[in-house]
Design a protein around this nucleic acid. Structure first.
Lengths: 246, 246
DNA sequence: CATTAATATGTCATAACGACACAATGAAAA
DNA sequence: TTTTCATTGTGTCGTTATGACATATTAATG
């Protein structure tokens, strides 16, 4: 396999994959072979492949799911994103073959994507250069390679921005969920508490939720009603967004 | 000059430069040599240059101003953005030298930036491949090369999005301006009319304007007061943004 | 069956919003 | 000089949205 033949030079994609589980926002990370460092799932872009499609491919390979919410959020193009010492260690640790040395020593720019996935649907699988693929809580991110911490930070900013623009949740929650679960998702993404009662009033006013007749039994207390997103109205709000300031 | 030596392969930047004049939103465009088509100002990225710096450089070269508002808004990475027939015509029209043929026939991805500039400060100058550099009203965009129309469309979306997030205007208006001029700027960007009185109330409530003691005389009617942006408070709002929904 | 802890719903004072009325002003016309 | 007129400056008013908080309801527990 000749990287130079196959891939667009000096270009990669990285996918910050968000999931929501145990009331925590998590990202899918790769544990690098023979290293203590972790990485955001990424890959190269084939010469005859849309950049977006490369991101979709990476996502599919790491999670085994398709058709999920995926958006480009930033291009990371600093000249010193990588340096030779990083590639030195990759070669030393036998993470990459020596004949691929010159490919990895290129200057790379990378396109950041963030994905919102339903936690339970994901089957994590590592890639060539990693030994494990795991969900990691955002509150507990380990040491990451290169500028991957910054990539995650920017992805979170983009996600927060998306939250203020339109609805979020259909891609992160199971089909049926309680109002508390939805609110906790928002609280987790925003990093702040929201008033339970006012949240419900406002969320319902958007008209994107269907209140189901079921309740979630089995909890220790009063059984909360279940809700689901109204596909049609949810998608309308996705496009039009919430109240514009102007 | 050897492009392959100098520049990062398969990568360009394009800058959608917005200006506001005669109550119209305009973009700075280049008229291609020996062609009826126009283009958004762009350039390549030097091998040892941040992508952002390449955009700054392009901007400086076309407008002769620096330190202006410039933000990356999207990477255009479709595999068929360009095609051979386009390069054929470039060579035929002697826009590019024949020995540079192979450089231009690469697959290119391009990073879109949008800039907000004060119209009167700009001194437009064409580049190697163009014969003119002019302001063109957004309402009257001519035939553009490649996907440049889409690039402008996306830039406008990004600008509109910026408008709902925080203050806009310091970079597009002269230091002193009337409330009507500011409102017209907003109306032009949004493409809709805004109530004169409610706009003023809301804009003042942000606390980013200083009302000056001067009025703009010389108009045909009552002389309107002049305002300027309060640098400190404007910048605060730029970072924090306006009212969040949540 | 009472207790408990969480859910469901409502209230209330205040702020924000959209629509609109009317007075003030300064250049231009009479 | 006086009147006209378009535009600016400011205010009002009814409605809706918001934040803070009170109270009733309910499923599981002991």
């Amino acid at each position: 396999m000749d990287y130079f033949e196959l891939y667009h030079p000096g270009l990669s994609v990285d996918c910050v994959i968000f999931g929501f589980h145990d009331n925590e926002l998590k990202v899918l990370l790769l544990k690098m072979k023979n290293s203590k460092q972790w990485a955001v799932p990424g890959g190269f872009v084939k010469k005859q492949e849309d950049v977006d499609d490369a991101a979709i491919r990476v996502l599919k390979e790491r999670t085994n799911i398709e058709d999920i919410y995926l958006r480009q959020f930033h291009l990371f193009g600093q000249k010193n994103r990588s340096d030779d010492s990083y590639v030195d260690s990759l070669v030393q640790d036998h993470v990459i073959r020596e004949d691929m040395d010159s490919w990895f020593r290129q200057r790379f720019i990378t396109v950041g994507y963030f994905a919102l996935v339903e936690f339970s649907k994901v089957t994590p699988s590592p890639d060539q250069n990693s030994e494990r693929c795991e969900w990691v809580p955002l509150t507990n991110i380990p040491d990451l390679i290169l500028d991957h911490q910054e990539i995650i930070n920017e992805a979170l900013k983009a996600l927060r921005n998306k939250l203020r623009f339109g609805p979020v949740g259909k891609n992160l929650l199971p089909p049926k969920f309680t109002m508390t679960e939805l609110r906790t998702l928002y609280e987790t993404i925003l990093g702040e508490e929201l008033d339970r009662r006012n949240f419900q009033r406002k969320m319902l006013s958007f008209g994107i939720l269907d209140k189901l007749d079921e309740t979630r039994k089995g909890g220790a207390h009063k059984a909360p009603f279940l809700y689901s997103f109204n596909e049609e109205k949810y998608n309308q709000k996705l496009i039009k967004g919430f109240d514009t300031i102007w």
